[in-house]
């Protein structure tokens, strides 16, 4: 049993490092940027705020349940994990470490942007396999809502990009 009055939001954040995106198992929820707040009130109740990457992402429910089970496992009895749009997720919220993990996983990380997505931005992905820039977007949609599909003319491989949003 953990006395939640004596723990800090930073500790809880560290616990959540073990929770990964079920569709991209190298990426923690912290690095994905979907944990938007951790609060412990005076009675010791822990509230974790999360925000969906895509409104229709079927993995969000799994992520929410995974966070709940980590809190349970750590002995927190009074907690709430809230999924809301109070903070709207965008792909700039993926951390540097997350971007490296994506690339290693074979997914091109989303380019940083000024929140205006246009065709120029998504068309020129850098190949995560060979770092080639001579690439072509095949379709802005892919096997998951967050991915687009590309082809690299340098290494002649198809690859996917985590879409800028």
């Amino acid at each position: 049993m953990t006395e939640s009055k004596n723990i800090s939001p930073e500790e809880i954040k560290a616990w959540l490092e073990e929770v990964k995106d079920p569709e991209i198992p190298v990426l923690s929820l912290n690095d994905l940027g979907v944990i938007t707040g951790i609060d412990i009130n005076e009675t010791g109740k822990v509230t974790v705020d999360m925000t969906p990457t895509f409104a229709g992402c079927p993995a969000m429910d799994v992520m929410q349940k995974d966070v709940e089970s980590v809190l349970q496992k750590k002995g927190i009895e009074d907690f709430e994990v809230i999924l809301s749009f109070k903070t709207q997720w965008n792909s700039n919220m993926i951390s540097e470490r997350g971007r490296k993990a994506l690339k290693k996983f074979g997914l091109a990380p989303p380019p940083k942007h000024n929140l205006i997505i246009d065709i120029e931005l998504i068309e020129h992905a850098k190949c995560p396999l060979c770092d080639g820039e001579n690439t072509e977007m095949k379709t802005p949609f892919g096997p998951a809502l967050c991915r687009s599909m590309h082809y690299c003319h340098d290494c002649l491989q198809a690859f996917e990009q985590f879409k800028p949003l």
């Binding site: 229709g56 802005p140 949609f141 809502l145």
Partner: peptide, 15 residues
């Protein structure tokens, strides 16, 4: 690609 596009847009819209 169009099969995937319309399926993805379906998933977005229903979500």
């Amino acid at each position: 690609e169009e099969d995937i596009a319309f399926s993805s847009m379906a998933q977005d819209k229903v979500g």
